[in-house]
Each structure stands twice: as structure tokens, then as C-alpha cells.
Design a binder for these strands. Structure first.
Lengths: 204, 204
DNA sequence: CCTATATGTTACTGATCGGTACCAAATCAA
DNA sequence: TTGATTTGGTACCGATCAGTAACATATAGG
């Protein structure tokens, strides 16, 4: 199974051997949080979807907020795996890596079933600035942006920091745009826009 | 009072003559919805902040959802006024209009007190695709994007549709990025990025 | 003045929220 | 088999949710 670009939830991967309760809870919570929103989903609904009960949930997670943080931590981890996958697949070819990233990001942003980036969504939903999830979100986003900047630099592109910022914001915008307008919108031109911007940073 | 770029709430404009209840409710709701999130704010809290009570609230709005929709409709209206203001201020100078828009958008995205675009945030919070607010959001965003495209075309820039998409997504991204990473992030370079992208569409 | 309308107040509904106490059943290690 | 740990089930807690009924008080217009 090749890693996905992620920051959507997906997967469920019907297990041959039944998953332990903690795993089932995280899987169910991920699906519900992503599709319906964090505040819209109660712990009762999560426990039921996980085929267990609230007591078991609270034996594994000290609070709903902690469960939310873990949900986001998992997604951030998957995203890291995708970067690793790209590097392993196309070593010493940063231009190709950037192309693969752009394509994967575009597919993610234009998934009609998708609801954008779970971490960005969480930042919108959880306004309390001391929420345990906020650290996870900020660290993830900074890491994404920095990784992209390194890639742009390695690819020998002009003004790599600025280019990375442009691509980063473009993607963030595309994923939130898909939720407000829908995929029949600027976000469906994301890949083309990214290519054009990359081209404009190509050293002539 | 010059119109603001808006899609944040702000205002409060301590009225000399006391506002009627409906207005007070909308003002209070706007402030709370924007700062804390729609789902995080109960109708009781809104009524109290408006200096009235729940009954009066429900005499003016048939449900919380209807109040939310009206909250967003107002913001969309203010945004339209800003476009009108720009046109009136710099008629027959689309390049200047674009510059003013970019600058205002940049200030909006980088307001450290800001929480991004209220309409985009609502789209994230309200996953139900039949929510009465969704029409308002989609129409607003489409209108914004189209208005921007017209401006780029009038300004005689290259590939105006694509440029508008780029600027649109860049702004959407900047406003959501400010919430996840904070204003010390790519979003604080928004204006510079916008200028660079516009320049790259300048007919040589 | 009187009457109609708008607003305020209180109390309530039934549902759901996050979180817990308690005990029984299942599982697992020795 | 024994004994410890993990899980399931149920019932509960107090708080809050969106929304309403009933009644008292204003405020207006004639």
C-alpha cells in the first residue's frame, strides 16, 4: 500500500483480525470528525461507531480533546510518511518529487468526497487557543511548509522560499475553497496554477 | 466611514440611539460566531450579549440556522460595498483597484485578532450540505472570484482567469493559514506574493 | 385615553453534551 | 485453575443545547 497525500481520513482497511478497541475508536473518530466536524460529533456516537462504549473510550483517552489531538497526530504522521515515500521513490530528483507532490495535493484538494485538510479544519473549529490540538496543527503546518521550501530549493528554483509560500497558500486555499464553492471552482485548476507558478520561478 | 474589506466581523459602533433588538442580536451574534465559532456559541449566550432574551431572538429569527444565514448574508453585503467603494474611488483605473484590493486583503489576512473569512469558516463548521448558510457561502465566494477575474481582465493582465484563481486561492489560503500557524507564517507574505504573481502575468 | 404590538421574564421541554460509578462478563497470564 | 486485567453494559451526573408556553411589562399609535 503506497502512502497517500492524506490529511483526509479515508482508509478503514477492514482488518482480518479484529482491531483492539483503542484502534477502533481512533478509526471511527477519525471518520466522524473528518466528515461531520469535530464539534458536531459526540463521544457517544464515536463509541457506538467503534463498536464499543463510552467507558472503554475514556479508559484509552483522558478526554474528548485528547482524542481529537491524537486524531490529528495520526494524520500528521501519515503526511510525514508520504514525504518519505516521495523521497525514497525519486531520490536525487527534487523536480520530480515536487511534481508528484503537486499532483497528489491536487487530487486531495479535488476529491469530491473530501472536506479539505483535517488539521486546518480543526484550527477553524477549535477557536480556543489553548486547545491541546493547536500545538499539533501548528507544528504540522510549519513542517509542511518548510519541507516544501527545502524541496523548492533543492530543485534549484528561483526564490525558493517565496515559491514554497505561494504553493503552500495555494494548496491551503484550494482545500478550503472546495468546501465553500465545491470542486467546480478555482480549486480544480490547482495543479495547472501550481505548474504555472513553478514555471515562473524557473531560472531562465 | 470607509468600507472595510471585511468578512471579519468587527464594528460595534456604539450607537447614539439604542439599536433595535434585532440589530443588537445580529451584532452580538456576529461577534460571537466569528470569534468563538458558530457551533461553540449557544442562543442563550447570544441573547445575553445582545442585552435581550431568547424569546425576542426567536421572534426575529425562526431558528439558530436562520440567524447564522443572516449573519453571513450581512457580511457578504459588506464585502459587496467594499467592491463598490473601490470602483467609485478609482474609476477607470483597474490596476489601482487591484492594488487596493490586494492591500486590503493582506491587512485582513494578517490581522492578529482575525480568524480568517467568516464565510469560509462557516463552510468548514457546517458540514451538512443542506444547511441554509451554504447557499449564501457559495454565492458569495463565486461572486468574489468572478469580480476578481473581471478586475484582472480590465487591468489588461495576461491570462486573467487563471490569475484571478491564483489570487483567490492565495487569499483563501492566507486566511486559513493565519488560523493554523498564526500570522508569523506564509500569510504575512501574502501581499508580496500577490504582487509577484501579478507581475508574472504582466504583458511584457 | 385606550388599544395593539413589541419586548422582557420565568420556567419549562426533551435531547444531548462530556464524563463517571459500578458491576458483570470476557480475556489472558501464570 | 487461579487471579489479574481489560472490556462491555447500564445507569447516572450536572450542564448545556435549541426551542416554546404563558404572562407581565413596556411602548407605541390612534
Amino acid at each position: 500500500m503506497t502512502p497517500r497525500f492524506s490529511t483526509q481520513t479515508a482508509e478503514a482497511d477492514a482488518a482480518p483480525v479484529p482491531m483492539p478497541p483503542r484502534e477502533r475508536i481512533l478509526t471511527a473518530a477519525s471518520d466522524l470528525f473528518y466528515r461531520q466536524g469535530i464539534r458536531a460529533v459526540g463521544v457517544d456516537a464515536i463509541a457506538e461507531a467503534a463498536g464499543t462504549n463510552k467507558m472503554t473510550l475514556y479508559r484509552h483517552f483522558e478526554s474528548k480533546d485528547a482524542l481529537v489531538a491524537e486524531y490529528l497526530r495520526r494524520l500528521s504522521g501519515k503526511s510525514q510518511k508520504f514525504w518519505g515515500y516521495i523521497e525514497r521513490e525519486y531520490p536525487d530528483n527534487p523536480r520530480k518529487q515536487l511534481g508528484v507532490w503537486l499532483e497528489a495535493a491536487g487530487q486531495d484538494a479535488n476529491d469530491p468526497q473530501g472536506r479539505g485538510c483535517a488539521l486546518a479544519n480543526a484550527a477553524v473549529e477549535l477557536a480556543e487557543k489553548d486547545h491541546p490540538a493547536r500545538r499539533v496543527i501548528e507544528e504540522h503546518k510549519r513542517a509542511q511548509r518548510d519541507r516544501l521550501a527545502k524541496l523548492c530549493a533543492d530543485a534549484g528554483l528561483d526564490q525558493p522560499e517565496m515559491l514554497a509560500d505561494e504553493l503552500f497558500l495555494l494548496l491551503e486555499g484550494a482545500r478550503v475553497c472546495a468546501q465553500s464553492i465545491g470542486t467546480d471552482s478555482p480549486c480544480c485548476r490547482f495543479v495547472r496554477m501550481g505548474e504555472a507558478i513553478i514555471a515562473s520561478h524557473d531560472k531562465k
